[in-house]
Amino acid sequence: MTLSVVIAVILVALIFDFTNGFHDSANAMAGPIATGALKPRTAVVIAAVLNLVGACLSTEVAKTISGGLFDDSLISASVILAGLVGAIIWNLLTWLVGLPSSSSHALFGGLIGAVIVGAGLASINGSVIVSKILLPAVVAPLVAGFAALLATKIAYRATRRTPSAHTEGGFKYGQAFTASLVALAHGTSDGQKTMGVITLVLVTAGFQSSGTGPQWWVILAAGLAIGLGTYSGGWRIMRTMGKGVVEIETPQGAASGAATSATILASAHLGFGLSTTQVATGAIVGSGIGRRGALIRWATARRMVVAWLLTLPGAALVGGLAALLADRGVVGVIVLLALLAVASLVIWRISRRNQINADNVTDGHEVLVLSTTPPPTYVEENQLDDRKHGRSRAKGAA
């Protein structure tokens, strides 16, 4: 029984890692794709390779998860499985509607909810959760946003007397470079979270000593899973990040990428389980504030903040309900896995009603879920805006 559940947990953890990859690929590559600095397919190939490389560079975040958040002597493999189910369902739902919520917080929320239900509140190390998860969730996006704001202002001020035709190419190279750094940083942060979960289940099942880090095959498997997920694209969230919050120009794209990568790499070194999505979004908003005349879609930003606030409790609720089922032995585990498969299939079928891919990811900023009508292209949006402004001017003249 224990071995079969452990194998199931490892497989489901790698599935979560795959969803993490396509859910968060926009963190690195939405900007350069939106500005044309990189072609969509080229961008996801670069991000996938660097996610794999980054996952193999550090294990500090993995150690935080496997040995810091929970008392591994009180939890079981089935509880960890329930937490992963909660994280995957939340990831798929937010991907469906194109909301760049946090895969990291979905994982933490799912695990916390499952552990509370399956092992009790005493099995959670509250001080570690506050210092390693909650505080970075508040501080890191603000730091990245402020850094991106300053970098954007400096970039435009330094080139204000230079013709844009002379600077555009250089900033495109700069944006491609900083986006690649973000992809590398994403691997060092999010790639390790699945390593930590797999290590945690190996420890709880007695296959590995408590306090030890991830084994080499765990590092390699997690790196490959997140790399493959990134390669699949995650185009729905890519559209929201690249077009939905602010129209990104190459100077601000390069600035936000630099701020994002620096924040994530520093946090990963300290073992913080921060959200790379929140950091990247904070940097994008900061770059929009830093560019004079930039149109920031605050309504979209507010929706994203609401999604961030709901992610931990929402995933925890799903994880807790899954733990009630997983606690019923082999039958409960089998039913839980079947429900996960059915829910994933239903969400995928709904997403097929309005597909977003590499060919249309930059056409607009809306992500329609239930409508069979494709979203307007960027040109159509501009034409519609012109007609609205024209009517407004006509009324004003009258």
Rank of each mutant, 00 (worst) to 15 (best):
330 V>Y: 06
12 V>W: 08
257 G>R: 07
15 I>Q: 12
397 A>S: 02
244 G>D: 08
281 T>H: 06
192 Q>C: 08
68 G>F: 09
80 I>S: 03
381 E>Q: 15
201 V>E: 11
340 L>G: 05
252 Q>I: 02
336 L>I: 03
56 C>D: 03
273 G>P: 04
274 L>F: 13
385 D>A: 07
135 L>H: 04
91 N>Y: 01
370 L>M: 11
231 Y>T: 05
56 C>A: 13
317 L>Q: 05
352 R>P: 07
230 T>F: 00
171 F>R: 05
180 S>D: 06
314 G>R: 07
140 A>L: 04
157 R>G: 12
147 A>S: 09
240 T>P: 00
187 G>R: 06
58 S>W: 03
25 S>G: 09
77 A>K: 15
77 A>M: 07
189 S>F: 05
259 A>M: 04
158 A>G: 03
278 Q>H: 13
231 Y>V: 02
152 T>K: 06
214 P>E: 05
183 A>R: 01
203 V>A: 01
359 D>W: 10
297 R>I: 02
153 K>T: 08
161 R>H: 08
253 G>P: 09
316 A>K: 08
333 V>Q: 13
48 A>Q: 03
35 T>F: 02
157 R>M: 11
338 A>R: 08
28 A>F: 11
289 I>R: 14
49 V>L: 12
259 A>I: 01
197 V>P: 06
138 V>L: 15
65 I>C: 09
324 L>Q: 12
16 F>N: 11
255 A>H: 12
257 G>I: 01
144 A>G: 12
240 T>G: 00
292 R>A: 14
255 A>Q: 07
176 A>S: 06
301 A>W: 14
379 V>A: 08
369 V>K: 13
325 L>D: 06
29 M>V: 15
29 M>A: 04
335 V>A: 14
336 L>S: 06
196 G>V: 02
216 W>V: 15
244 G>T: 08
33 I>K: 13
371 S>K: 13
379 V>W: 11
73 S>F: 04
330 V>E: 15
54 G>I: 04
332 G>C: 02
